[in-house]
Nucleic acid binder design. Sequence first.
DNA 1: ATAATATGTTTACATGTGTAGTCGTTTTCG
DNA 2: CGAAAACGACTACACATGTAAACATATTAT
Lengths: 137, 137
Amino acid sequence: MSKKSAKKARDQRPPVAITEAEWAVMELLWESSPRTSQEIVALLEKERGWKRPTVLTLLTRLAAKAAVSTEPQGNRFLYTSAVERSACVAEETRSFLERMFGGALQPLVAHMAEHHSLTKKDIAELKALLDDIQPKP
Amino acid sequence: MSKKSAKKARDQRPPVAITEAEWAVMELLWESSPRTSQEIVALLEKERGWKRPTVLTLLTRLAAKAAVSTEPQGNRFLYTSAVERSACVAEETRSFLERMFGGALQPLVAHMAEHHSLTKKDIAELKALLDDIQPKP
DNA sequence: ATAATATGTTTACATGTGTAGTCGTTTTCG
DNA sequence: CGAAAACGACTACACATGTAAACATATTAT
């Protein structure tokens, strides 16, 4: 269950491309929004060693591509993710499968199987997973 | 957990990163090697509209990163793919799964299921596929 | 021998991306 | 009030990537 109704056009706008570095910022905003630049800077300085201007640049670029929205809060800004993580993951997945496997999942699984990238456990888990899926009606 | 024997070191050297444009060149060489630049230029001019220097630049860059090998043939070169397609696909796949899904396949399948990206037929095919796989011993 | 042709090399340039220094303000603390 | 701190904007720069013009040289056809 997901779209259909939603007259409010809650759809994410055209697939936003998030770069590697930007992804780190988005993860924080997906984890919790809104946040101040201060928080984000502090966290990324710790986990990636980035300087404040670096993080601010990323935030600016993300805002420019409307992946995050900014809201004035006094003299500063509150940053909020404006695209859903799952939508971004979906887009990355789509383009990856397209480029590598003609868009389908089966060839990827087949490839991994041939490369012995799947353990017996992986296979069992995948089967279980597939058994629980409700195909789109 | 995987290398072991293989004294012949048939391993592809450190994962070569093939860019989008370069991929088009590699596909041709994987399809058939060796080839002359002339052939490659002709084909890519047709299917991508690229000018000769563009294709030559790509060949040069690929040679620089040892993804293709060149062999003098008279005054010109014969170009041959020097990395296996499946190895490149494997690397792309690995890095993609890493970045998006923590390296595992299950979360990807789960994601696609949630996004209704899998039809009943897809699911059936995947199950069939998994049934035929021999897990790595 | 000359002119035309084919080849590879050099150089070039715009855009994207990762990273960060510096600036100009504003806010806050002493 | 004046100095320090916080904040966002602007500027910068190197490297990657897509794309190609120019160039030098070798080869071939006339």
